[in-house]
Every structure is written in structure tokens, then in C-alpha cells.
Design a protein around this nucleic acid. Structure first.
Lengths: 151, 151
DNA sequence: CTCTCTGCAAAATGTTTGCACACTC
DNA sequence: GAGTGTGCAAACATTTTGCAGAGAG
């Protein structure tokens, strides 16, 4: 039961294989707390294994997103960012605090209780009123980080 | 005090002029409740006045965003969408309910009280903990709309 | 006459696709 | 061998930029 075991299981469940490229990409995602772009992953993976191209990164990221292993975020300014989904990482449920100036992104997990109260009320109400089936939500706060204020 | 009066004032305050192209773009934004893309605006404006090119649309949208007249949203899937900011439209404070399948976007204004409670608590707490100056937030709910469920 | 604004064409960016080959079962 | 996975190059879509001319104050 090695490192790739659980990923192998997950992918197999969707009819996919765990290849070396996919494992390398999952390693990058597993070993960072940042939100990484396809390019970020490419650079890391490519340094170790120059055989792996950017196309594979994109194709793998899409596959991982569709199997629910990772989440894709579009914070704006061009490139999408990825992170392991909560079920597949040690991360707690969190949302994002974003600096409008330097675009730094901070994950916060605080205020979960107040959040839950609001989210539950809104989700139930929206499902009823608009007849949606809601399964996800996203909260961003935007502002200026301390470094950008003084800098 | 004609139609473009208030826009003229706003733009002048930032050292910009209200040109015909800019007025046409603001007209499109004012007369829709949808979230429109640069291309959407281009098509409408260009139909009336073929002289106006896509470059002007992009340049104007950036200018309007920076003067706070409009808001830019990146819902993902490529194109940015724009709408008049709350201060410049008759819209109430709202957030978005997004269908993952057909990408329809619904504005909702409900649950403002519960939202305010959560947002205030989180904003104050995050400002204190992370020393950010927060001035905006965004909430999205994702799900499947009734049409996509039955369709 | 100066400075803003604009159109056009070209560039830049991030992402996707076609195709042929490699690899796994 | 059948089908999945991959690299490369080319295509793609959206947005940005350089430049020279048009227009407003």
C-alpha cells in the first residue's frame, strides 16, 4: 500500500489509470498549500521529468477535476488555479481572502459556525425558490493585504 | 440634464470624457439585467454603430471598472462578464446562483440579513487576524437548475 | 495645437485539439 | 491487439498592445 495507492483506487473507480505523469501531478498538489496553476505544476513536474508536457498537465487536471479529486478556481487575471478537494486533502473547509493588489490568496477556516448558519439558510431557501439543486458554494473576500498597504 | 448626464459627471470626475462609444456601452449595460460579456456588448453596439470596434469595448470596460461604475466577474469558462455596480444601477445587493450545466446565472437578493451577520463577523475577524483592509466580498452558489434537471 | 480617444492589425496569453506513437492490460 | 495515455505542433479564444490617425477642448 504505497503512496499512490489511494489515488490509484480513486482513478480506477472512474476507469482511469494512475500513470507516472498523473502521480507526479498529484504529488505536486499534495505537497503544497498554495493554489497552483497548470504552469506551476508543469514547471515542477517538468524539472523532474522533462518528458512530461504541458498538454498532459491540462488533460490530467481536467480528469482530476471531473473525478472530484481536485477543485478548479478561477480567481480572475487569466490562469486557473487548482487544489485538492477537501475530501482528498487534510484541509478543513475554507474560503478565500484575496489581495486586490498583489493577488495573494489566503485560505481561512474561521467563522465556520456563522457561515454554516448563513449557507444553510440561503441554500435551503434558494433551492425552494429557484428549484435548483445546490451542491457547492464559494465565498471570497477582497481587500488589501498588510504588505501592500505599507509597501 | 439628458441621459448621459450622470455618466458624464462620473467620468469627468476621473478626468475622462463621455464619448459616443462610451455612452453606447453604458446604454447596453444599463438596459439589461443580464451579465454581459465584451463580445455581447460589441455585437449590440456594433449593430447600431459599426464604427465602434472591439478594442474600444475592452478599453472602455477597463476604464469603467477602474472608476467603479461597473463590476467585472469571472465566472469561469473563458469570458469575463460585466454589470453596473450596485451604486450605479437600481439593483439591490445581490449574489449569484449558477447552474453548472447550462451556466445560467441568477441574481438573488434574499437572506440579506443572515448574510450581513455572517459577512460582518467574518470581515471584522479577518481584518483583525490577517491585517487586511477588506472592501468587497462575493458569494456564489453552484448547482443544477430545474431545466437542466428535467432536460 | 495638444491631448484624449479610437480603429486596425498584430501580439500575447492561457487553453484545447489532431494526430501519430507508446504503453498497458 | 484494443484501448488508454502522451508529446508535439498547430489551432483556438479572449484579451492586450503599438501605432498612426481622428476628434474634442
Amino acid at each position: 500500500m504505497g503512496r499512490g495507492y489511494k489515488w490509484g483506487q480513486k482513478l480506477a473507480g472512474h476507469g482511469f489509470r494512475l500513470t507516472a505523469a498523473r502521480e507526479a501531478i498529484l504529488d505536486v498538489l499534495s505537497s503544497t498549500n498554495e493554489h497552483v496553476s497548470a504552469e506551476d505544476i508543469y514547471m515542477t513536474v517538468h524539472a523532474d521529468n522533462p518528458r512530461i508536457g504541458l498538454t498532459t498537465i491540462y488533460r490530467t487536471l481536467e480528469l482530476l477535476e471531473q473525478t472530484g479529486i481536485i477543485c478548479k478556481f478561477e480567481f480572475g487575471h487569466g490562469r486557473a488555479k487548482y487544489e485538492l478537494s477537501e475530501a482528498n486533502s487534510h484541509k478543513k473547509h475554507h474560503h478565500h481572502l484575496i489581495c486586490k493588489k498583489c493577488r495573494k490568496i489566503i485560505d481561512y477556516t474561521e467563522f465556520a459556525k456563522a457561515e454554516r448558519e448563513y449557507i444553510q439558510k440561503a441554500e435551503t431557501g434558494l433551492e425552494k425558490k429557484y428549484r435548483f439543486t445546490i451542491d457547492d458554494h464559494l465565498i471570497h473576500f477582497y481587500g488589501i493585504c498588510p504588505e501592500c498597504k505599507t509597501g
